[in-house]
Amino acid sequence: MSQTAKNVATMKPGEMGIIAGFTDDFLATKLMEMGCLPGASVRFNFAAPFGDPVCISVLGYELSLRLDEASTISILN
C-alpha cells in the first residue's frame, strides 16, 4: 500500500491527530463502530515491542489495532 497522506500507523508515541477518513471500506465500518469517527481526535500512545499492534486513545478509551488497520485511518494535522 502506498500512503501519500499521513495515517495513524505513521504517528509517533504521544502524537495527536484528527481522523480525516478511511482508505478501506470493509475496515471503516468496524473502525467507526469502535469510535474512530471522521473528525474525532486520536492520540497514538505506544506500539507493542515488535512495532505491531499499536495502542491509540479515541473516544475516551484505549484501543489496540494492528498496524495494517491503523494505516487505513488517514489523519489531518
Binding site: L27, K30, M34, P53, E62, S64, L65, R66, E69
Partner: peptide
C-alpha cells in the same frame, strides 16, 4: 476473509 484485531485495552 480478512483478519483484524480491534480490542480495547481496559484500564
Amino acid at each position: 476473509e480478512r483478519s483484524f484485531l480491534m480490542m480495547e485495552l481496559p484500564t
